[in-house]
């Protein structure tokens, strides 16, 4: 039981990171139905920004997180502006063109980081003394508390924002019917940009948290994390914010349980195996709206 509780704690911490990135995928998808493949790279840039701030400016934890979020926000906006917005404007551009453009942005960003930093993995300097607390037989580290706490804070903040602000309402309107929302005076481009900004900020925070937690930062870290987070978003029901959180946590838990069951060599397959199984049973994801076929 204690063992199980322990794995739950570990899974929750890992899952929080996936959930944060998954939120970015799901929000953008909900609004413009685009798989933003560059999100994994934005997460990676977040991790590097944090690393840079800590190494160069001796920033503390909060500064590192906020600095990374600020930088990735800008980066997200630039990516949206350069790689996606021109395609949205072009009448000939289908969804696949946008997808390829997103993939191009992803390759560009990861290569850029290889050029700036080199392909090697760097450890994250210790920001504070890690400690373990024992809680009902399971031990939880300060790092884990940090990750779960920051993630929860950001998710609740996002939920409140989307639910209760005018901007949030406009975003939800946009995801229901873009044309109608535009007719009602919603500034579509601005809302899309805000969505990218928020998603990128979350990915930036996730990057720093992951850097600290795994004590490893490298230019290709975004690929697998991004794919799994995307799987998490689809698992939960893409377009659904609670779905992304549930999906992220589930995939984190599944991976940790797999590792505990001495199957760590197979762990990269778990996320996707679960995903496929869930989709076969419920094609729109766990919390996704099922689309009624209209004839």
């Amino acid at each position: 039981m204690a063992q199980f509780l322990q794995q739950m704690v570990n899974g929750l911490a890992l899952g929080s990171i996936y959930a944060l990135i998954a939120l970015g995928y799901t929000m953008v998808y909900g609004i413009i139905a685009l798989i933003n493949f560059a999100y994994g790279e934005i997460y990676m840039f977040g991790a590097f920004t944090g690393l840079f701030l800590v190494l160069t400016w001796k920033a503390n934890l909060y500064l590192a997180i906020f600095g990374a979020m600020a930088f990735t926000t800008v980066l997200g906006l630039v990516v949206e502006r350069v790689a996606y917005r021109p395609l949205r404007r072009s009448r000939n551009a289908g969804r696949l063109s946008a997808l390829i453009s997103a993939i191009g942005a992803s390759i560009f960003l990861s290569t850029l980081m290889v050029l700036l930093h080199g392909p090697a993995t760097t450890g994250f300097p210790t920001l504070f003394q890690n400690r373990n607390f024992v809680l009902g037989g399971a031990s939880i580290s300060l790092y884990q508390i940090l990750i779960i706490g920051v993630s929860a804070l950001l998710m609740v903040g996002l939920d409140l924002f989307v639910r209760y602000t005018k901007t949030g309402r406009a975003m939800r309107a946009l995801s229901q019917d873009a044309d109608a929302a535009a007719l009602m005076g919603v500034n579509t481009d601005l809302m899309i940009a805000i969505t990218f900004a928020i998603g990128s900020a979350l990915a930036g925070a996730a990057g720093v948290l992951a850097g600290i937690y795994f004590n490893a930062v490298q230019p290709y870290m975004g690929l697998m994390a991004g794919l799994k987070a995307f799987a998490a978003a689809v698992l939960g029901g893409i377009g659904s914010i609670p779905g992304a959180v549930v999906g992220g946590l589930l995939i984190g838990l599944a991976e940790i349980m797999g590792v505990a069951a001495k199957l760590s060599d197979w762990k990269d397959a778990f996320a996707f195996a679960i995903l496929i199984l869930v989709l076969l049973v419920k094609p729109s994801g766990l919390l996704g709206r099922s689309i009624i076929k209209k004839v």
Binding site: L87, G94, S101, I103, A105, F108, T111, L112, V114
Partner: peptide, 21 residues
Amino acid sequence: SNYRMLVYGATLIVLMIFRPG
């Protein structure tokens, strides 16, 4: 050398913008 994947990625974006089909 090292810049080629950078160019590759950028080319994909530019091509999709100007010839999306």
